[in-house]
Design a protein around this nucleic acid. Structure first.
Lengths: 127, 127
DNA sequence: CTGGATCCTTTAAGATACTG
DNA sequence: CAGTATCTTAAAGGATCCAG
């Protein structure tokens, strides 16, 4: 079988069955792009577990983030379907952010990633 | 309980038990940094399943990557313990790349990520 | 309170040429 | 064959000011 036709057969029952390396890589890249952003993990972990936080609460919980980036990342997470944004029509305005069911479902995946990272063998001491 | 003391208790048996959101986010960020790079997924998926490829074979398998980026990403993956680099002392030189056991162990994690991404609810049609 | 708009800096990535 | 070195470009992120 030619190299370019090689399939990833590592997970016979999983998503990686019978796809080319290119297809698998593209799929994972697309998934990772949803999570790409300096502060997205901070935001997600503030919301995991059913948390409902206002914009200003997220600002306080993540002191290092700028308003611009917090807004931008929240908008991306909302657009991508991980978080919901609820605007309460009152003065002053109030906006609540929470995870969607699909967003919550990311938690065990990140847990698995963390578990993998924890299994990393000891590295040679840096010179 | 104060917000800043809230724990992520989603995975009682997992790595996310009893850590603050900040700690969890930092850990996941560190893990994701190992995978960050335009071509790393392409490289990894070429090697998943026990593949052993030479530099030029990777170049052919991933036509769009430049020599510079291929070298750079391979070096990072080697430094981070995901791939091994074997230099055969001969002329012309020959270098083989393969995954470490830990690198191979990433495959099921990426499979889980892909499975999560596939469960994404349908988005409203873009205007 | 919850942002939007603008400007500036940093970093990743691509193009190209050259070498043991 | 398997890289390095240098230059240029594109994208992400940060700082600051303004507004409903």
């Amino acid at each position: 079988m030619a190299r370019t036709d090689r399939k990833v057969s590592y997970s016979p029952t999983g998503k990686l069955a019978d796809v080319t390396p290119e297809m698998a890589a593209a799929g994972v890249d697309a998934a990772l792009r949803l999570l790409d952003g300096r502060w997205k993990m901070e935001i997600l972990f503030q919301l995991f577990g059913g948390g409902v936080l206002r914009f200003s609460e997220l600002e306080r919980a993540i002191p290092a983030v700028s308003q611009k980036m917090l807004t931008q990342h929240l908008r991306e997470l909302e657009r991508d379907g991980l978080v919901t944004r609820t605007l309460h029509a009152q003065v002053p305005p109030r906006v609540d952010y929470a995870l969607t069911a699909w967003g919550e479902a990311l938690c065990p995946v990140l847990d698995a990633l963390l578990d993998w990272a924890a299994r990393r063998p000891a590295q040679p001491a840096p010179a």
